[in-house]
Design a protein around this nucleic acid. Structure first.
Lengths: 166, 166
DNA sequence: TTCGATGCAAATAGTTTGCATTCTA
DNA sequence: TAGAATGCAAACTATTTGCATCGAA
């Protein structure tokens, strides 16, 4: 569990899919059952979608994906299930600037740089934040969690364009 | 693609109150006039409130402050004026985690560390972000703007409490 | 057969917008 | 007196919640 700069886990431990050829979807569903939860169609389809598509999807995008298979699943059910999966440590959500939160598997640890101009999102290893982490800890005893909120700014092309204008 | 709102004027240069004994409120109102804008009661009172009270106030808090002097000023007017003042570079807003945005004078440059547990907000000099800035620029050519979004995490006391639990 | 999960509608929070009216310059 | 700014209501986005019903264990 070596963590960048010795940071501790915030929240519940991040869950990682089992190694080997076990189906990660079933593994998550087992986790749900072990908690006294029930495995419903919407949950099975949502978890499948999470492992299947791209990460950084909003609740709405996930709902659309789920509804291709199970059209009656309501958006509020998606929210409730994402909340449950987050409590289990299977998914995390991140805020990439304004707009809706995005969800991705907790096993994919990274921070985010988001361009304020063109909305480009760069996934960055947590190591990028190591120095900030050390500095915040040294000065304030503050332990940063660089995963939850993106760091905004300007991507290389937009920063260049701005610079020219002075 | 997922364009949330429009990319407005990403911000003129930060405006700083004139040195010397000029009234900074009048200086801002002059700025407004110079733009072809008009100086109304709500604007005068809002700008006065911005220079008078504490920083990091939400639109709602500012509305309450304004309404103590001018009770009829509507919240939507506050939003519209804050937007105008932001375009002029007089104020900036920051998102300190979930919840409403907070506004403060652009002349007060700093970043924010916000505790996810107890909501404590630490104003930090931008120097704290220097290493992250260098790293983001070196690796990705990305120029961070550490003022707009807070960096979340755990303050010293809440981090300590977590650590004990393991 | 129980109680957890769902669908739906409605509530919520924060912010924005349309429009007729008011008031500054 | 032109047109910028306002008050108000309503729309809007993202998310949460109450409640009757449904269905997994």
């Amino acid at each position: 569990m070596a963590r960048t700069g010795g940071a501790k886990d915030a929240g519940s431990a991040a869950w990682a899919p089992p190694a080997g050829d076990d189906d990660p979807v079933e593994a998550v569903l087992d986790l749900l059952r072990a908690r006294g939860g029930r495995v419903t169609t919407s949950r099975r389809v949502l978890v499948t979608a999470l492992f299947g598509g791209e990460d950084h999807r909003t609740a709405e995008a996930l709902a659309r994906a789920v509804q291709e298979v199970a059209p009656d699943v309501h958006l509020s059910t998606i929210y409730r299930n994402l909340e449950e999966l987050e409590a289990l440590g299977v998914v995390v959500h991140a805020h990439l600037g304004h707009g809706p939160a995005t969800y991705h598997l907790a096993s994919e640890l990274h921070g985010h740089l988001v361009c304020e101009v063109c909305d480009a999102t760069i996934e960055v290893p947590l190591a990028v934040f190591a120095a900030l982490e050390a500095e915040a800890r040294r000065r304030y005893g503050f332990v940063i969690d660089p995963r939850h909120f993106a760091v905004l700014g300007r991507c290389s092309s937009c920063a260049g364009a701005t610079q020219e204008r002075g």
